[in-house]
Design a protein around this nucleic acid. Structure first.
Length: 962
RNA sequence: GCCGAAGUGGUGGAAUUGGUAGACACGCUGGACUCAAAAUCCAGUGCUAGCAAUAGUGUGCGGGUUCGAGUCCCGCCUUCGGUACCA
């Protein structure tokens, strides 16, 4: 409807009605022109840093799930500004990543170009929503001016080792100095392999030998790691590109392949990462996830002799007390000793088993509980306590990177060991008597030792202590702390990531590229296919690789978490080309006060960032040991997915609609997956059935035929009593992603309802931390609210705001809202804030309140949620300065006083009546009053009144028995 | 498997410390205005029985603690996130 008249031709004053399209573009521009959201690094105000987890700019564009957290943090940032803080609230892009490279391989479009396009689109979409970001501080991890510093920090990691005594990182030059004075004896440092050498030996080593020794100590170091290798595709695959042991694309076999990889020694920081969790305002759930991820356990490192070899088998156990029950050993299939110790007779069986395991993912290996697998190596170890030779097996449930990759199996006291022993007929000796501890599980460290030599008769806890002493005395073991946390694999055989500032000489010794040469930029490439042997495409850019005289650059690139581990520091001083950020800027902003992002980053990103931050702290480059003081997780917005499952075909065999060849071709969907029917919702009947008739309509409709075939004659339809042919559609909630055709873009909503409505609707959907399905059904409610709010300021005459003094009731409504909204913002309950605004506006409307003394503070209260409408009304109220620079309204308790309180009257906990009670009455007076009520008499007559419970201000409960 | 979270009307959700279950919305039903529609406004709306007053029942399932349990305890079920190369 055009503004100015309605369809009857009646004149209306157009600004009396709320049209976001008349308001929002105007303020969007005005705020840019006036640099309203520009943040200074100098201010008398207290600082507050509100950070969003920056997005990966995918080709599907920003979807409605992204802004959920951004809107919440935007509201909080605006709220803090109104409260008088200098608020840093920046945004940027995590712009390196696999999808852009995949896209480049498919289309030939350079990742830099597609990424730039995606970023531009993201920016447009973000701008639409009215965020208060200071865009002058934007960062892009793929920008050389940014990744120069990612490379620089890597060089620091490369150039440092972890001194366990000082409990901090120190320069590798300190290490070489000590080695040349005292040899390895003088060093207590985190390392990959224990070495022992004298100062003399150190000095006589070749450069290459010294380099190998130092590599064991560096915080960024090289070691052999395993990758998912797909021979058919000639490339290394990410874990989520592998499904059931085959590549998701094409279904080719995938195996584990050993490659020399860079790693980061995050384990050196394990203890600090664990201990410092306490100081953080994170949810207990998140802290628990981090604790479990770090997985600290105290136990014993024990060495067993291997018969017929000059080798010691190192194992880690938390239950050294059960060593008398250790009847066999299990090694990870990838264990270094496997080839050495396997006997000729077992070679074939072992190789067959290794083949099987190489196609198994770690999740598969851990998740398999019903069926244990393993193979005997033919070798034996010696158990010095029982004096028996015990067989050494391989088993996939033992992982190479956890502990030492080998365990002593105690089948009596470990469930998996027990399953293993049962399956392969291995000996089981009971060593712990738990009969005194009914209800305790195998896992509990309780019971009395039996069949255990000198430990027999001891309590488990005492036996553990006793055994530690014994092992040390015998010189075959010691107390040790083990972490589940593993060093981070830091190499990717990809193009679209940060190049390593590392060059190898002819001996293969790694040298840092000089800082002056940073950034070491990516070469231009035409072809983004991996190079031969699964190497990064960079290996094909020979000129680039050999640009340093006599040296060859590393061709792998850094992983996604490199750039995202420190980006929050760059925002503090984003333009700096002398340092990653100036001391002054870091000194002012310190750390992130509030960090908002998804739980999916609970362990990965949040462990690595904390690790980098602690490292930079050790180097004196950041003032605190933790980057993120307070953190809240936003839930995911899911989409509804519609699936036709298990359709019957002709002979009764379970199949899908269409044929499998089409499916693979059209969407890459696996055969055997349920078939997706995008946007089918409108065609379903009440029981979620799609009838044959409706299917035809669905098929005709635009854009719906992603993976269904139009020829329905091949389908097997179910038939109901009326002869109606149909199949049932299952509705599930799932992640939004381009490949699922379920991405919902915010643009359309913003265009139709305005940004204010979109912002408030996203908040209104539910608690921020909960995942929930996207559905626009309820958006009209928020839209009506905004129109109603707008209408408070207008009457038939047009703009109509009164200067009258408000009544007590009006003040109470306002202050109820101020209290509720403020409390709820503080506890990040934004959905209930929106409800509180609705209640407030409903009540003011009922009173036809148009008084400035009420509407003005309310407008400021609403400004963080709906920045556009409030700015417009603020201007109309006669203010020359932005509402976003106003002062937050103060709550006044005096406005809340009430004469009577409404009490529910319950009998045995069930509500039977309500009563209004004078607010000044005491508890006893209320109790007496309750007895006189008709409703009470009815329930009490003829029964025993046991007692009357009065909870002041809350409720009255009568306890009655027969 | 392991770690973490969630489960409340037809739908999204509220109930902050153990104290009126279903706030606020959507949807639906009826009504007002209109030639009609849209928009707006008013009323009703957990379920079962009943004309009604009312009664019973009700927060994933099974137990328990309590005057009182969505909330606490024990045991399950289902869904979602992570599980180390998606970001």
């Amino acid at each position: 409807m055009p503004p100015g008249s309605d369809t009857w031709g009646h004149k209306i004053i157009f600004h009396m009605l709320y049209y976001p399209e008349n308001i929002e573009p105007k303020w969007r521009k005005a705020w840019v022109d006036s640099k309203l959201y520009k943040v200074s690094n100098e201010s008398d105000k207290p600082k507050y840093y509100v950070l969003d987890m920056f997005p990966y700019p995918s080709g599907a564009g920003l979807h409605v799930g992204h802004p959920l957290g951004y809107i919440a943090s935007d509201i909080y940032a605006r709220y803090k500004r109104l409260k008088g803080y200098n608020v840093l609230h920046p945004m940027g892009y995590d712009a390196f990543g696999l999808p852009a490279e995949q896209y480049a391989i498919q289309t030939g479009v350079h990742p830099a170009i597609s990424t730039r396009e995606n970023i531009n689109r993201y920016r447009e979409q973000l701008d639409n929503i009215g965020f208060c970001y200071d865009w002058d501080r934007e960062v892009r991890t793929c920008d050389p001016a940014y990744y120069k510093w990612t490379q620089w920090i890597f060089l620091q990691l490369f150039g440092h080792y972890y001194d366990m005594e000082a409990d901090k990182a120190k320069p590798v030059s300190d290490l070489t100095f000590i080695f040349s004075k005292e040899g390895s004896r003088g060093v207590h440092a985190a390392n990959s392999q224990d070495n022992s050498f004298t100062a003399e030996e150190w000095k006589t080593m070749t450069a290459r030998q010294q380099d190998e020794v130092l590599m064991n100590y560096r915080l960024a170091y090289r070691k052999t790691g395993f990758v998912n290798w797909c021979e058919a595709l000639g490339t290394v695959l990410a874990n989520d590109e592998v499904k059931d042991g085959v590549s998701e694309r094409g279904g080719h076999p995938v195996e584990k392949k050993a490659m020399m990889q860079w790693s980061l020694r995050v384990t050196a920081y394990a203890e600090r990462l664990l201990n410092d969790l306490e100081s953080l305002e994170w949810t207990d759930a998140l802290k628990a996830m981090q604790r479990n991820w770090i997985g600290r356990s105290e136990g014993a490192q024990v060495f067993f002799d291997i018969l017929g070899h000059d080798l010691k088998l190192e194992i880690f156990t938390t239950r050294p007390d059960t060593i008398f029950g250790a009847t066999f050993m299990v090694l990870a299939p990838e264990h270094d000793y496997v080839q050495t110790i396997t006997t000729a007779g077992q070679k074939e069986a072992v190789n067959k088993y290794l083949d099987y395991v190489s196609g198994r993912s770690e999740v598969d290996r851990m998740a398999e509980v019903k069926e244990v697998t393993g193979v005997f190596t033919g070798a034996y170890a010696f158990n010095p306590f029982t004096g028996k030779n015990i067989p050494i097996w391989l088993g996939e449930y033992v992982l190479k990177d956890y502990g030492t990759g080998a365990i002593m199996a105690v089948p009596s006291d470990d469930e998996r060991d027990q399953l293993f022993a049962r399956k392969f007929g291995l000996e089981i000796i009971d060593v712990v008597d738990k009969s005194n501890y009914p209800g305790s599980t195998l896992h509990d460290k309780t019971g009395i030792m039996v069949n255990s030599g000198f430990l027999t008769g001891m309590e488990v806890t005492k036996a553990i202590r006793e055994m530690f002493m014994h092992l040390e005395k015998m010189g075959i073991g010691s107390k040790k702390v083990n972490y589940k946390l593993r060093d981070a694999n830091y190499s990717r055989q990809r193009y679209w990531g940060e190049p390593f500032p590392i060059a190898y000489d002819r001996d293969g010794v790694a040298h840092p590229v000089s800082e002056k040469q940073l950034p070491l930029t990516l070469p231009e490439l035409e072809n983004f296919q991996p190079a031969s042997g699964g190497k990064s495409p960079l290996a094909r850019a020979e000129d680039w690789v050999n640009q340093l005289d006599g040296m060859a650059l590393e061709t792998d690139t850094m992983p996604g978490f490199a750039g995202s581990s420190w980006y929050f520091l760059r925002y503090m001083d984003a333009q700096n080309d002398q340092a990653f950020a100036s001391d002054k800027a870091i000194g002012y902003w310190q750390d992130v006060d509030l960090y908002v992002g998804g739980t999916e980053h609970a362990v990965g990103h949040l462990i690595y960032s904390r690790f980098w931050h602690k490292f930079l702290y050790d180097l004196g480059m950041v003032p605190g040991t933790e980057p993120f003081k307070k953190l809240i997780n936003q839930g995911m917005i899911t989409a509804f997915g519609y699936y036709a499952e298990h359709l019957k075909f002709g002979d009764g065999e379970d199949i899908l609609i269409g044929n499998s060849k089409d499916l693979t071709q059209i969407s890459g969907v696996h055969v055997g997956s349920p078939i997706r029917l995008p946007y089918v919702y409108d065609y379903l009947d009440g029981q979620n059935r799609l009838t044959k008739e409706k299917f035809a309509e669905y098929w005709q409709s635009e854009g719906h035929n992603y993976n269904v075939a139009g020829d329905t004659s091949k389908y097997h339809w179910s038939k109901d009593e009326q002869g109606e042919e149909y199949f049932t559609v299952n509705i599930v909630q799932e992640k939004m992603s381009k490949s699922k055709f379920n991405v919902q873009n915010p643009d359309e909503i913003v265009r139709r309802y305005g940004a204010d409505c979109f912002r408030m609707y996203e908040m209104f959907l539910g608690p921020i931390e909960q995942s929930k399905p996207w559905d626009t059904k309820g958006i009209d409610g928020v839209n009506r609210f905004l129109r109603k709010y707008w209408s408070l300021f207008f009457s038939d005459k047009g703009w109509d705001v009164s200067q009258e003094s408000p009544t007590a009731e009006e003040y109470k409504i306002l202050h109820t809202a101020i209290r509720k909204v403020t409390e709820d913002i503080e506890r990040f309950s934004f959905n209930t804030c929106v409800s509180a605004f609705m209640v407030c506006v409903n009540e003011l409307k009922r009173l036809e309140c148009n008084k400035q003394a009420i509407l003005e503070p309310l407008n400021v209260l609403l400004a963080p949620f709906a920045p556009f409408i409030t700015e417009e009304l603020w201007e109309k109220l006669g203010h020359g300065q932005s509402v976003h620079l106003a002062a937050y309204p103060e709550f006044d308790e005096k406005m809340m006083q009430q004469d009577t309180i409404e009490y529910p009257v319950c009998v045995n906990g069930k509500k039977r009546d309500t009563v209004h009670v004078d607010a000044t009455l005491t508890q006893d007076q209320i109790r007496e009053l309750a007895m006189t009520l008709d409703a009470v008499r009815k329930y009490v007559t003829g029964k025993n009144l046991q007692k009357v419970i009065v909870v002041p201000g809350r409720m009255i409960n009568l306890v009655v028995s027969e």
